[in-house]
Nucleic acid binder design. Structure first.
Lengths: 206, 206, 206, 206
DNA sequence: AATGAATGAGCATTCATTCAT
DNA sequence: GATGAATGAATGCTCATTCAT
């Protein structure tokens, strides 16, 4: 391996160390509650290094959110859309499985998304716009899925799709937060299974 | 009205103005994102006045949370317990009605509770302890209610009560957050009704 | 007693309570380290009352210092001058007795003088000027006394009067401060006697 | 000189500039009377720089006091103990010489010690404890020296050692303060000589 | 005679950001 | 590629002072 490659590799190591430190800290302390000194030192680097790799503190967050969007939105949608031939109910089941599974495999990413949405809710900024778009995509996707399910009579028709979609997404977010608050007394598998069944049975109730 | 009464009244006016301003700002910008200058000037007072009435910024929040606890926890539990003779299902219905109704009559209070819980999650402080106790009470209450409903066969028995309780509470919180994020496109009544039915049908599914 | 007299009496009671509280606090915490709230509440009054009786915080101090000047300077000098016919040595003995005695009967006053002199040393203000004049009077008095004693051969002539005067005054001040710092382990009577003898024997050494 | 050395040197320059500015200001205005802005700008730096080098305002003071302890206590004691074979009288003479000399070579340090002792007298803090220990060491050292001198009959035995020690130390402190108050009219050499002789003759008086 | 309410300037401290090296 | 030094704006909080009652 030549010098340039080594450098590029080192670059990636440092960037990943910084992003990883930032994710952990943003989730546990919030964006405002985390300072650059903490991010840098948790990555065994200096504050200056953060500015070598990122334009600002907010850029670090946006970079993280780009990674999260891929996992939580892009891949989720792709995963379901790979099953287009199946019924809306099967698609919903696949979606809910996918999402509850993320709570196990990518908890920090999911929480980061939920928490940053709230922290940047009313703060005009690049981050806010990025998050709003991401949320909109999730809502649209879920609303469409529910609408199809209502047309196919898989799902209940007595409640409007838009509101049902918000509840499905909101219940997921709320459950992740509950899991985060009380992971000491809750069982992750049971929680995931309970959420899935509550959502599916709730939506298919006639 | 005598002089003393006028002063007491003025006191209450100022305190309420400050608390009200603080609630609005804490909900929209977060606790850390709000500074005392904003609270004071939104109440048409100076920063110094805040310290005349409250020991610290955190005391303002705790005072608000005490009010919220009464509305969201004490009154809710009292409301349900006034119906002790009724079936667990009826009690759950009453609870869910009560809570969804709060989203209309006391949205800011409910949101304050949810948001502060997250912001203070890992911050050792009086606030954190206060919030943790409040949340514990809610969880215990809901878990007991669900256990009773499972015993009486009102509710499904295939999922554990503790996790179901977390989902009911989490779904409420998540839905309030969704409502806050997208109140422009959602219909409050529909959302409340959808949440109630999803929860009740989800829990009573056999 | 008529109403007016009662009022005048009440006035004096409040003023004395404030001055007394202020003296104690200024001595133990310094002028800057004491706030008006403490003075007022230690006198069972409100902050506003202080401003009813005094123009400002500094006025409170100046009022106290006027009382102190009478005791520590005026009365001391008068006391010695009542013995004008006696020898300079006897006058010095009388002075030193008087001053060490003040450490027992009026410790707070003496300390207030010493401490405020230091705290206002380089702060241009009415207080500073007042203190400087008081100190000047003490120095002049002592220097003259020593000069006379040197002329009468009561005192040593190998050291200049001005510097000796500063040492006598400084030793007193320093000893009062030492007493204040370590009154738990020192014996007041012994300390006073030791200081008197060190000063007298030191000055009369030939 | 390499880069690292330059940085280390720059570091020391800035730290010393800050400490020096702080010493001057603390002595002339007191600790409370000095704000960080003054310290920083007197060192041609910004307020932030103070916090780059010191944890807090109080840390700046403690750092200064550590330097002072070395000069005023450690070195003084070491200086006398290097003469252990000599008589207590000679040791006292050496001590008094050493201390009066400090008034010329390290006036600011000596004054800082005296003034901060008073300002922190009743303020529970790290500084207070540090100062109390330093003062205790001085008292113990002087008391022992006087006791030995009393045993060897070098010093008077009619007064207790503990109180005599307090007077020697107190007289020094008081004289330094007098010198600071009136250096314009006093002669430093004469003052130092007068203090030395007053102390020695006062202690050896039989 | 005295108080409670309110102000506003001042202060210690934090922190994102810049920059020379 | 990365750091240490330094900045300056922002913030929670204190406190002397004012004033209506």
């Amino acid at each position: 391996m030549n010098t340039t490659n080594k450098k590029i590799e080192q670059r990636q190591v440092s960037i990943q160390a910084l992003l990883s430190a930032a994710r952990t800290l943003f989730v546990s302390q919030g964006y405002q509650g985390t300072n650059l000194e903490q991010i840098a030192s948790n990555a065994n680097l200096s504050k200056g290094a953060v500015y070598f790799y990122f334009k600002s503190k907010e850029t670090v967050l946006i970079e993280l959110l780009k990674q999260v969007e891929k996992i939580v939105v892009d891949d989720a949608i792709a995963h379901i859309e790979s099953k287009l031939r199946t019924s809306p109910l099967d698609q919903l089941i696949a979606y809910v499985h996918y999402q509850t599974n993320l709570g196990i495999t990518h908890l920090a990413d999911v929480l980061l998304l939920v928490l940053m949405s709230l922290e940047f809710k009313e703060k005009k900024s690049a981050t806010q716009e990025f998050l709003a778009q991401m949320y909109q995509r999730q809502c649209d996707f879920m609303e469409n899925l529910i609408k199809e399910g209502q047309l196919s009579k898989d799902f209940r028709q007595d409640l409007p799709a838009k509101e049902l979609a918000s509840i499905v997404l909101g219940a997921h977010d709320g459950t992740f937060l509950a899991w985060y608050k009380r992971s000491d007394v809750l069982d992750g598998k049971d929680l995931a299974r309970s959420l899935r069944m509550m959502m599916i049975d709730g939506l298919t109730h006639q």
